[in-house]
Design a protein around this nucleic acid. Structure first.
Length: 214
DNA sequence: GACCAGGCACATC
DNA sequence: GATGTGCATGGT
C-alpha cells in the first residue's frame, strides 16, 4: 500500500504541480475558511471572506464581538449562513476561553491534544479539525474529505464502509510523516476530484491515475 | 430546473 | 450503530 500511495502522489504532483494550499493570509483566516467551506464550494467561501475583509472584521477580536446576526448576514454567500455563524461563534468562544483569542498559542500544544479539543467544539468535526491542524497550525495530520474517499473508493484502495479514521490511518501509516507532504497530497486529491471525479459518475472521467505512467 | 459543492449535528429507529 | 434530515448560496 505504501508504494501505491506514493505512486499516486507522484502522478498527481507531476500532473498538477504544487497547489499552494491553504489559500488564506493568516492561520485565523484558514480556520475560518475551514468552517465556511463545510459542504460548500470554495468560490462561495471566498465571497464570504471578502465580505469580512471589506469591513476589516477578519480577526479573532472583531469576530468575537460581532453580533451573530450580523456575522450570518456577511457570510451569506457561503450558504448555511445561520449554522455557520453559530459554528464560528462556538470556535471563537473556544479560542478565547482556552487561548486568549491567540491562535498562535495553540501551536505550542501537541496534535492529539489539540484535535481532541477541537472535536469538542460544536460544529467542528474530523475534517474541519484536521484542516485547522494541518493548514492553520502546521501539525502533521492527514485531512480526509469526500473527494479523497471517492477517489480511493473508485481505485479500490478502500471499501464502501471505510470510516474517516480508517482512511486517515491508511495514509498516515503508509506515507512519510511530513507536514509538507500531507499538505500537498490532500490538496492534490481535491484538485483531482474537482476536475475528474464528479459525484454521480461511476468512475473518474479520464482519471490521470489510470494513465500508464508519470 | 436539477445537480453539486473541500460537513456536521441531531432525531429516530 | 446505522440511517435520515435540515441547513442555503451560487455555479454548471
Amino acid at each position: 500500500m505504501a508504494g501505491r500511495l506514493t505512486l499516486i502522489y507522484r502522478k498527481l504532483y507531476s500532473r498538477f504541480g504544487p497547489q499552494h494550499w491553504w489559500p488564506g493570509d493568516s492561520p485565523f483566516e484558514v480556520a475560518v475558511g475551514a468552517i465556511l467551506t463545510q459542504n460548500t464550494n470554495w468560490q462561495n467561501v471566498e465571497k464570504a471572506i471578502k465580505n469580512l475583509k471589506r469591513y476589516k472584521l477578519l480577526n479573532p477580536q472583531k469576530l468575537h464581538k460581532l453580533p451573530q446576526q450580523r456575522l450570518a448576514f456577511l457570510i451569506r454567500p457561503a450558504g448555511y449562513y445561520n449554522v455557520k455563524a453559530k459554528r464560528l461563534k462556538y470556535f471563537l468562544d473556544f479560542l478565547f476561553n482556552a487561548y486568549g483569542g491567540d491562535i498562535k498559542k495553540m501551536s505550542r500544544f501537541g496534535t492529539e491534544v489539540l484535535r481532541r479539543q477541537l472535536l469538542l467544539v460544536n460544529g467542528i468535526g474530523p475534517e474541519t479539525a484536521d484542516s485547522i491542524l494541518l493548514y492553520a497550525l502546521g501539525k502533521p495530520i492527514f485531512v480526509i474529505d469526500a473527494y479523497t474517499k471517492r477517489i480511493l473508493g473508485r481505485h479500490r484502495l478502500i471499501g464502501e464502509g471505510a470510516t474517516y479514521e480508517n482512511v486517515q490511518n491508511l495514509f498516515m501509516e503508509n506515507i512519510k510523516n511530513d507536514v509538507g507532504l500531507f499538505n500537498e497530497y490532500h490538496a492534490l486529491l481535491v484538485r483531482l476530484g474537482k476536475e475528474f471525479c464528479a459525484k454521480k459518475k461511476g468512475k473518474c472521467d479520464l482519471c490521470p491515475l489510470d494513465s500508464p505512467n508519470s
